[in-house]
Design a protein around this nucleic acid. Structure first.
Lengths: 223, 223
DNA sequence: GGTCAACTAGACCAGCGAGTCCAAATTAAG
DNA sequence: CTTAATTTGGACTCGCTGGTCTAGTTGACC
């Protein structure tokens, strides 16, 4: 159940020297694992391949993670954390800076959309959908760690804007839900579920349209 | 490459007696295959299991479809066709009947959303995402057969409404894209990628909110 | 009754991949 | 240097599954 100690374990008291003693094998394995899982699917992915791609012996993988299943969970968790961080950083910028709200929304929306359309983000969502039946808890990991929090944070920001009179008063959660839908919804078809590169100008177009529609619906009462 | 004839093949000249001489094994196999593929994923799904679930011998499966891969393709194709039919039937009702446009949109939207949230629809989308890397052509099958056509048909209907002055003049394709996004976008999180049953009242709520926002953005110029 | 095609049950093979084990090599730290 | 931990490569077990084959059954049609 416990891996034989590494990162924050045995050596923590004395310093984390042992942890990154050599290179960060652990991180290398997690990255390789996610890449291979995303490319081949859980069942098709060979632990040998993951080890090779991480530049590591197969036994090392088992030393760190015990079995394939926990490897999958850890890899997905790491990826979800990374995605969350990117999204939250972007959301910081959604504030009432006194400028054109339209411009701010477009800038933040565009940034969010770029996160959403990142290769690894698409890979994460596809992998999640793929293995949902076998590992239902993955959904809690990802949604609880990333998706829900982003929606929550977006709703918070929108609430501030409503209070400041920059948006009409409405349910912030619903506004966030719909803003997100307007942004990401069109990308499913356009990017072919993430298998086609979308030009940045296309992202701009979608964002502009989304913001336009959003402001028509949620803009201040005095149009 | 060619299956050893069944449905519309050998016996067609003499009548389709032989075809459905016994039960429609073919359809039973396709249904079972889709169910098992959706539940376990392509790699994990055993042909034995599919055969058993279809009430058929394993050899029969191979008689009809040759190998596992074409079985997957056929099963997905059949499911996509079915989904398309349901959606198109619903869209028929989106017309300028002189009544409240809001009510019509809500009724049709609700119907569309029920199609979208159907168990088999979610299963299809998840399976598609899962096997997209291994079988990129599945995307063309599904998108070409169902998704694109529905979007197209919806755009057509909206164009009619714009022309009739019931909606403000705008790009019908974009309006359709956003209406779809407003409807389906919120369901991803709410239904936990289709693994949670959503009450019909919740579908109603989402639909109402979507139509409300849509009409604020695309309603006739004279609000 | 006879013929033919489809179907069935089950054995069977071959390949693949998870997980284990081990002896040797590398490394970190005192 | 010594010691303990980690890593390595590779061999090995073992269960699972796609696909084939065979011998026998069913049922439709003439």
């Amino acid at each position: 159940m416990m891996r034989p100690m590494n990162g924050a374990g045995t050596s923590a008291g004395r310093g984390l020297a042992t942890a990154r003693g050599r290179i960060d094998k652990r991180k290398a394995i997690l990255d390789a694992a996610f890449a291979v899982f995303a490319r081949q699917g859980y069942a098709q992915a060979g632990v040998d391949v993951i080890a090779a791609e991480a530049g590591v012996a197969k036994a090392t993988v088992y030393n760190h993670f015990g079995d394939k299943e926990t490897l999958l969970r850890q890899a997905i968790t790491a990826q979800a954390d990374r995605a969350l961080a990117r999204n939250m950083a972007t959301l910081e910028r959604l504030t009432d800076d006194g400028g054109e709200l339209c411009a701010t929304l477009e800038e933040v929306g565009h940034s969010l959309l770029r996160c959403y359309c990142d290769d690894s983000s698409w890979a994460l969502r596809r992998l999640l959908a793929a293995e949902l039946n076998q590992f239902p808890d993955l959904l809690d990991i990802v949604q609880g760690r990333a998706a829900d929090r982003v929606a929550q944070a977006l709703a918070d920001r929108l609430a501030r804007l409503m209070l400041a009179g920059r948006l009409r008063a409405a349910d912030p959660a619903q506004a966030a839900e719909q803003f997100g839908a307007l942004l990401t919804g069109p990308m499913e078809a356009r990017s072919r579920l993430g298998t086609r590169e979308v030009a940045d100008t296309e992202l701009r177009d979608v964002t502009r349209a989304a913001v336009h529609t959003f402001l028509r619906a949620f803009g201040p009462d005095a149009v």
